[in-house]
Design a protein around this nucleic acid. Structure first.
Lengths: 170, 170
DNA sequence: TTTAATTGCTTTAAGTTTGAAATTTCATGC
DNA sequence: GCATGAAATTTCAAACTTAAAGCAATTAAA
């Protein structure tokens, strides 16, 4: 092994360490923000993050979504979606609609009440995010989006099982 | 309201939207990576992410940590830490040590077996991260670290309750 | 057809996580 | 001393999650 090989190895190792540090910061940021969102949703809106996430997916899908589509997009188990949708339905925020031609499946959609409730929630939610990310300026935000897009592309591509489905399906 | 006010408002609204988009990407990246780590830890190492996280904190603290310190640093409930440490202790990977002068508290530290086990885990873990973040080069990584540091600083500063404790205590 | 395989969803059991008591110990003021 | 409040953990119940099993309906094959 000559010295240029050694240098290359050393650089690889250093980059690996730096990537690890990045992951730790990414993880911490995400969990700090998520915890705070959870707390505020519970405290101020009598709701939860999983419910908000499901409603957000439904609000973005004018024709509703099948249970399996919700489960794929949010990357949570099918059984879990059943429970969340059950509760939204109990509260009159969402409903299951029969799919003509397939009696196994059902489409889930927001009720009018659900749409109204989500519209309120979404505004508050965005303002919270805007507050929490308040010290990142436009350049920062765009720079990070650029790099995260690249990261997500790689994660989707790199086989990582169940998680690539989302982009494949679109 | 004159036109310059309107422009300013519009820019604020646009920035708010962009920040929201950033958060969504951040959240997705983190959860995709986390899910994959969870899966691999279970499949290849017969372990879990919370256990790994606790061991990592302990490994980085030569004198061990109090239960409350673990709970603060990982931002999980105190009751949860009790359970995780119980299991690590059962398996001989960690132990509780009495704190002289305070019979309420106990200090948790890795056993030698625990240190050995963690050393192995940590190498594998870093290689996984290095693989998953493989398409981010040094510039990307450093650019993101820079911005995430600023974000974390703001999150710590901005009162956000329980979450600022970590940095305050150091 | 009849059979087999797949799909979409729900149910169940087991394990996590949390938030709120409950417990024990420490610290302080009186 | 003694009472009161705070601190460090643990216990406990409720909510959430997942993986696996189960069902019913659909599709494909023989």
């Amino acid at each position: 092994m000559d010295s240029s090989d050694e240098t290359a190895l050393h650089q690889d190792a250093a980059l690996s360490r730096t990537r690890l540090a990045l992951w730790q910061k990414l993880q911490k940021s995400a969990s700090v923000i998520e915890d705070e969102l959870r707390r505020r949703l519970r405290r101020d809106c009598d709701s939860t993050l999983p419910r908000f996430d499901v409603m957000a997916e439904l609000a973005a899908a004018p024709d509703g979504l099948k249970m399996s589509e919700i489960s794929d997009r949010l990357r949570v188990s099918a059984g879990n979606v059943t429970g969340i949708v059950d509760k939204l339905a109990e509260e009159g925020l969402a409903r299951r609609v029969a799919v003509p031609g397939d009696r196994r499946a059902s489409r889930v959609e927001l009720t009018e009440k659900g749409q109204g409730a989500f519209a309120v929630l979404a505004r508050i939610y965005e303002s919270w995010i805007n507050e929490m990310l308040g010290n990142l300026n436009l350049d920062d935000v765009e720079g990070m989006i650029l790099r995260l897009d690249r990261l997500v592309d790689a994660l989707d591509t790199d086989e990582f099982g169940a998680l690539s489905r989302k982009s494949e399906e679109r």
